[in-house]
Design a binder for these strands. Structure first.
Length: 838
RNA sequence: GCGAAGGUGGCGGAACUGGCAGACGCGCUGGACUUAGGAUCCAGUGGGCUAAACCCGUGCGGGUUCAAAUCCCGCCCUUCGCACCA
């Protein structure tokens, strides 16, 4: 009778169906009471491990993506605890922000009530799922004891010249009624509501992330992050090496400064282009007949929406400004245009145009009938066809003294010439712009600044923090007016410097500011004197493993890196990177696309918890696909895991009583008179530990780790009844420990069933014995002329001789091998394969 | 256009430094047990034949090798990110 048939036999064994509800309630309560998952912060007695998952936005309920994300992190946390690490595994809430506010407006509830009640619900869901968080460290970014320190962060950045205010054209979302950072504009649309964004000019606060562009770029090299995330950040930072060149404007004392990466093509510059909004463009037409036409042109350009501007098919539109620049190399007169394909924000907002070697310049030149003069030819002498634009490096022609030089040489020599004559220099430009952090919304951390008639902009002193977000405010968004501006009591204050009347800043901070430092607050969440203790931060930082979705590849992950670097330079932390390893998990889809309320393709974790239990939900999300890949939710797949759990349960029911009194056999040593099946079982359990450990360590391959557990159970149920009590006890105890990080409730139940005191989660992770991974005999594949023809069984480590002998004597291969075992050649890979060439 | 990751059964996916392709699970087929079963268990399941023997099979075409999903050359396709960045 095998255990696989045991469902029928449960009653006869006195066992019952696994009651996951009871088990989950019981153990989750026990864990909390015992405080099993508290990080010790023992400062050095144990190695530390900071395991972090991206905290959720409290949108209402957990979705399957959360379940997957947090199941991954929980395996890592529990595994590391069993491995003897002092594990910090916290959870909190990214609780400020637009969606909370919008949802609250729709439902007519205060954002705070809405948010806090969501948090309460989601926290309970997480507890039901058995995630091993240290709940004493929970943070919510919308609470004053948290945002006090977000405001502190703002002040520190301000003190250090990394926060500043300027009037700027900003991205304005007409639907959300707020400005957005560049990173939050996707294809010219709002990242949240997808409305086309507009350009507005307002005074806004910025963080000077560009000051760290170089470090943010270089330090990527040393991070254990997925390559595609690093690539996205590199792309976003967008470093270009080139040169700044000053072109004098004929008949004036003005110069146009341009940035180019192709200084070597400067002899081919046949026109200049300024961004339409470039102040110089306006100056050049001022007081001329062109002024009126230019105003019209500007109006036309600005009417084009951001989307049109970004469209690749869009025709470039230029305007001749009636003036000429002078090429600093050959003195040539070059007409100056305004053109909408030149961006104000990048480089200097002005270019030299070389139509022969740049596609965009070429299109413009053709349209406005401007000469096209090639000055670089391919090194290999290849012909350039008419109408083709040669944009690569080559050899210079028609370039005065530089003719005959390669592009590389010319760039170097020309830059030297520029510097000698004070006409420009080498330069590096980035695409990265400063981070716009002002938001004209209610539900965020108020920017801690006041404006005084006498003193100007004055930061709120640290000891007056937090600047409390008033509760009773008309928080409906206005047009370019922050809701806080309507609260007279909030607005009117006194200047901290002179005591005179002053007005508060009424904008709140981008929620990405809140989340850019939360991993530091977990380290010391109740500290009232500082955002965190320096020594504790030194102990816990950096986060050893950070798990979350790819959607944060640039936004949150770049901001956090910047904030960490800034805090390091101010002396608050000692690390320059917050997350040494990043793991981005895939999405959970249904019907081929990400689950979303609007699409209606939702699987509600509550239903799954109710019908199948936490362990099944967790293990299924871990098993169904490699963790970094998307997977399609399948009820049947989940039921497969439920079956597996049931089989484990039945197996333990069958033997638990029997082995209670037994003394567990050691993992490694084969004792005298051990039976064949005992040995088999012992080897199987060693192999199990080995495979699961390796799979976890090798980039979290939980899907194959679980497959190894299934194989293990499949194998031992083939001969379980022949295994002795001592070995069975070892087997059951070890398997329970291996299961613990994956199905924590079940594992605890199994552990107790064996007569052990809780908790299995306090046990050490089992060790395998290297010698037990080897079998006594191995199956060697036999190939004839490279084709598989069968196998032979030989002793482990058999020599080529022995294997050849076994092949010859087996008789199975005689039809392929000539008599006397004749063959030309033979290749043997020990314990694997033997190939005869005949 | 630039950058990144991928193409393996009906499906999700395994396969260590080249060494028995398809582990594990889902699904499917047949059987057992059952009043019944969508429960459970047993057997089978890449394609070609009823079947063994055999042949063919990891996107396509070449190549290296005793041996290729894996290495090299040349293509094709998919997904994702960025995109008038000078």
């Amino acid at each position: 009778m095998k255990v696989r048939q045991s469902a029928k036999n449960n009653e006869s064994n006195g066992s019952t169906e696994y009651d996951f509800k009871k088990a989950e309630e019981r153990w989750s309560k026990y864990w909390q009471e015992r405080g099993l998952f508290k990080a010790n912060g023992t400062l050095g007695t144990k190695p530390k491990q900071y395991v972090l998952e991206m905290f959720p936005y409290p949108s209402g309920k957990l979705h399957m993506g959360h379940v997957r994300n947090y199941s991954l992190g929980d395996v890592v946390a529990r595994y590391n605890r069993m491995r003897g690490f002092d594990v910090l595994h916290p959870m909190g809430w990214d609780a400020f922000g637009l969606p909370a506010e919008n949802a609250a407006i729709e439902r007519g509830i205060h954002p705070e009530n809405w948010t806090l009640s969501n948090i309460g619900y989601m926290r309970e869901q997480m507890k039901k799922l058995g995630f091993s968080y240290d709940w004493d460290r929970e943070v919510a970014t919308c609470l004053p004891d948290y945002y006090k320190w977000t405001q502190w962060l703002f002040l520190k950045l301000y003190e250090n010249g990394l926060a500043y205010k300027k009037r700027a054209k900003v991205n304005w979302c007409p639907h959300c009624k707020t400005v957005l950072a560049n990173e939050q504009v996707i294809d010219g649309k709002c990242w949240r509501c997808h409305s086309p964004i507009e350009k507005r000019e307002i005074e806004q606060w910025f963080f000077k992330i560009t000051a760290y562009a170089e470090d943010l770029l270089n330090d990527l090299d040393n991070l254990d992050w997925p390559e595609h995330v690093k690539a996205q950040q590199r792309n976003w930072i967008g470093r270009s090496e080139g040169a700044l060149v000053k072109f004098a404007i004929e008949g004036t004392d003005k110069v146009i400064e341009i940035f180019t990466t192709r200084l070597d093509t400067i002899y081919g510059a046949t026109f200049m282009v300024l961004a339409p909004e470039h102040p110089l463009a306006m100056e050049l037409v001022q007081g001329t007949a062109l002024k009126e036409l230019y105003d019209e042109y500007l109006k036309r350009i600005s009417l084009k929406s951001e989307i049109d501007r970004l469209s690749t098919e869009k025709e470039k539109e230029g305007f001749f400004l009636g003036k000429y620049a002078v090429n600093p190399f050959n003195g040539e007169r070059i007409p100056i245009y305004a053109g909408d394909y030149v961006l104000t924000e990048y480089g200097t907002g002005a270019i030299m145009a070389v139509p022969a070697h740049d596609e965009r310049d070429y299109a413009f030149a053709v349209k406005y009938n401007i000469p096209i003069r090639p000055v670089v030819v391919p090194k290999d002498g290849e012909e350039i066809k008419n109408g083709e634009v040669f944009t690569e490096y080559g050899v210079l022609v028609n370039s005065g003294p530089y003719t005959g030089k390669t592009s590389e040489e010319a760039q170097k020599l020309m830059a030297e010439y520029l510097e000698e004559h004070n006409l420009g220099q080498k330069s590096v430009t980035y695409r990265l712009r400063d981070w716009l952090v002002s938001r004209q919304r209610y539900w965020g951390a108020p920017i801690p600044v006041v404006y005084c008639e006498h003193c100007g902009t004055v930061p709120v002193p640290e000891d007056q923090l937090p600047v409390i977000l008033p509760r009773e405010v008309d928080y409906l968004p206005g047009d370019l007016v922050s809701p806080l501006a309507t609260d007279e009591e909030f607005v009117h204050t006194t200047c901290p410097k002179c005591g005179g009347p002053a007005r508060r800043e009424t904008d709140t901070m981008d929620t990405f500011v809140d989340s850019s430092w939360y991993y530091l607050r977990y380290i010391d969440p109740h500290n009232e004197q500082a955002p965190f203790d320096k020594e504790l931060a030194e102990y816990w930082m950096p986060v050893d493993i950070y798990i979350g979705g790819v959607e944060h590849a640039v936004l949150h992950l770049l901001y956090s890196r910047f904030i960490t670097k800034a805090l390091k330079d101010m002396g608050y932390v000692t690390v320059s990177e917050p997350f040494s390893k990043l793991f981005t998990q895939g999405m959970v889809t249904l019907g081929g696309s990400a689950m979303s309320k609007s699409k209606g393709n939702i699987v509600d974790p509550d239903d799954i918890l109710r019908d199948y239990g936490a362990d099944a939900a967790r293990m299924y999300t871990l098993f169904v696909a490699p963790p970094e890949k998307d997977f399609e939710w399948s009820q049947q797949g989940l039921e497969g895991i439920v079956r597996f759990i049931r089989r484990i349960w039945n197996f333990y029911c069958k033997y638990a009583d029997e082995v209670k009194e037994a003394v567990a056999a050691p993992m490694g040593k084969l004792f005298e008179g051990m039976s064949e099946y005992d040995e088999k079982a012992l080897r199987a359990v060693n192999r199990l530990v080995y495979r699961v450990t390796e799979d976890i360590e090798d980039n979290y391959r939980f899907n194959t780790a679980i497959a190894a557990m299934m194989e293990f159970l499949n194998e031992v149920t083939d001969y379980d009844e022949k295994v002795s009590g001592a070995v069975m006890k070892t087997l059951l105890e070890t398997f329970a420990k291996v299961l613990a990080p994956f199905v924590p409730f079940l594992a605890e139940e199994l552990w107790a069933m064996l007569g052990n005191a809780p908790s299995v989660h306090e046990q050490s992770w089992p060790q395998w014995d290297e010698s037990m991974l080897q079998e006594n005999t191995v199956e060697v594949a036999v190939q004839i002329n490279g084709k598989f023809r069968g196998t032979v069984v030989v002793r482990n480590g058999a020599s080529e001789e022995e294997v050849r002998e076994a092949v010859m004597s087996s008789g199975n291969f005689s039809k392929y091998l000539s008599k006397e075992g004749g063959y030309k050649k033979c290749f043997y890979v020990p314990n694997k394969i033997i190939n005869f060439i005949v």
